[in-house]
Design a protein around this nucleic acid. Structure first.
Lengths: 342, 342
DNA sequence: ATGAAACATGAAAACGTTTACATAATCGAT
DNA sequence: ATCGATTATGTAAACGTTTTCATGTTTCAT
């Protein structure tokens, strides 16, 4: 069935061949400083001759841990997911842990299924990309029965969960300042949905960026939903108003792509008539026309740091709630230009 | 440490409360038809009262299987990966299996690490996105010691491995036929690398598409490397020749994006001066300018079928080598137009 | 009523590893 | 040489579940 099942050597085989007890074999492998050099050599040779590999299922049962971390995501298709997963997997793998994928598609029933699965002991820790604590599938109260966890990308409000993500406020401030530096004085923030934590954080940064200007600039938000279609629709709603912006700071790149498409559909030029900034630097931001100016999320680093914090906690080195907000980078491409209309 | 570790109920607790043996509890859960109704009720009640969840680590050890499948990929960042993963995870989850991610980044040393991990019994099966059998990290010969496996996307030549992917030949034939139907008579195939199995299959389809035309059309391949940069470079090399194509059938969407960019850089219009078709329909193919006409890979379905075949084999229902080549769809957008120069 | 078959249950072993505790041997100080 | 401390190793138990095998009870056919 599995790699070791076809007459694979067990620790008993090694012990017989080396002429020692199974305890000594185990010790030679796990605590070699407690085994005499000559004995250790006998064990090492026997391992090489038998091709012995420890059975992780037996280890897991004895040690009551699985060396697995479940990554719970509402969307594998999210453009940020692969980059975060790369970092998560890299750190996990380096420390001997496996990554288990749990895809909820934002559905409560799937979330409950995954929690039921988790209740079997299948994972020692949990990485949450969902932005909320999971709904319990097992009868226990999740607040007290969840394994150690870390939230990624979206902080969990009013919880003790550790968090790693981009510094949304600082990055958004940077993006807005850049538009201000180009002379833009009517800058609209296209949000990702009313009540959305991330949108509010990015708007906070947008406001800080506006405040850097000596003039008093209007705080102006219209609502998208984080998709390109939402960005498109937000532009439609804007163009029934008398006053237009000269620049758009968008919740994310998808939104920016929709905004650009809607502007171009109306015969406008980007960046000639309007400037547009996104957020994320998703893989294809540089391939659209015009190539998108955006904030790059350090996705790999976010994944790595999240896993490191989780595993440090698991391995007893640090159980405190930790939050890391990593620096986002302004990536200037082609979608922004000087304000052309005062 | 894990969900069940904080004074979680064991089967002993359930047995005591129900007043039966642990064997009966196990039987009531796994073979209920072998347990009297009244006994079963006592067990069911005790389970509900204790909140018992079976310990998967004990089950795994006893039953010598882990209910995990490892997905080995050379590139999490590949645009096709998320779609395939969605299908893999959906099927695995529906059948009670977990998905383990193994990222090799195309590096032999990482591949060996993952195989060492696999040798511990951590996974019952293997999904290979790598296009080759993995290099052994454990001392065993991989040809005889690998768990059941299925290749995805890239067939493994000269092996007994099952395979699921798009029907490259038929899909490429369709794309080429479409260009022919638009009147194109000089169609170049931009490959993904010399000796690349997938490129050869897609070229085979390209040739069949050409053969559908009453006129005898030239079979013309230039080499990219599967990246947009490779597509760009292939165009540069083409433009030092006397005869130019009127249309490009590209190995994949990335290549097509590069080809389009290079043509536009030279002041040409797509599709006015040249038509371009990609392959994959990656998530942002519709967002570039012009929106890319391409072949859509049924990624979700590929993942689902691959996992189903693998698990069928694991669960003893079918151990034969199976290959499924799924139908790709032509997605007509804006990057193709009638041949404008004879 | 008797005997065979079917049903139901419990005890014990299995799975493979880790580690506590007991014991023997060795080393170092007096 | 003796005693205490240190080093090294083996035995047995633990981990939690599944399933084999033995045994008792019930049902059905003669």
């Amino acid at each position: 069935m599995s790699l070791h099942s076809k007459k694979s050597a067990t620790i008993e085989d090694v012990a017989k061949l080396a002429g020692v007890s199974i305890a000594t074999v185990s010790r030679a492998i796990r605590n070699p400083e407690k085994v005499a050099e000559s004995t250790r050599k006998k064990v090492t040779n026997a391992i090489a001759r038998t091709g012995y590999t420890a059975n992780v299922m037996a280890q897991n049962l004895r040690m009551k841990r699985s060396k697995m971390v479940m990554v719970l995501t509402p969307s594998i298709a999210d453009p940020n997911f692969p980059g975060v997963l790369i970092g998560l997997e890299k750190e996990a793998h380096a420390r001997g842990y496996g990554i288990l994928i749990g895809n909820t598609e934002g559905a409560i029933s799937l979330e409950e299924n995954h929690m039921r699965f988790l209740a079997t002991g299948v994972a020692d820790g949990l990485v949450l990309l969902t932005g909320h604590l999971p709904v319990a599938g097992a009868p226990q109260d999740p607040a007290t029965q969840l394994p150690p966890l870390v939230a990624v990308g979206r902080p969990l409000e009013a919880t003790e969960a550790s968090f790693v993500g981009v510094d949304d406020v600082a990055a958004s401030k940077m993006a807005t300042e850049y538009l201000v530096s180009l002379g833009h004085r009517r800058i609209v923030f296209v949000g990702g949905g009313t009540g959305d934590v991330l949108s509010d954080l990015r708007q906070e940064g947008y406001r800080k960026g506006l405040a850097e200007c000596a003039e008093e600039l209007a705080d102006w938000r219209v609502e998208g939903d984080g998709t390109s279609e939402g960005g498109r629709a937000a532009v439609e709603r804007l163009f029934i108003k008398d006053t237009l912006p000269t620049a758009f700071f968008c919740f994310n790149d998808n939104t920016a792509i929709g905004v650009i498409a809607a502007l171009r559909l109306r015969g406008f030029d980007v960046p000639g008539d309007f400037s547009v900034i996104g957020f994320d630097d998703i893989p294809f931001a540089s391939n659209i026309t015009p190539a998108l100016t955006t904030i790059r999320q350090p996705r790999n680093k976010i994944g790595e740091r999240a896993m490191a914090i989780l595993l440090d906690g698991l391995e007893g080195q640090n159980g405190e709630k930790e939050s890391e907000r990593l620096h986002g980078d302004l990536v200037v491409r082609e979608s922004c230009g000087p304000a052309s209309r005062g």
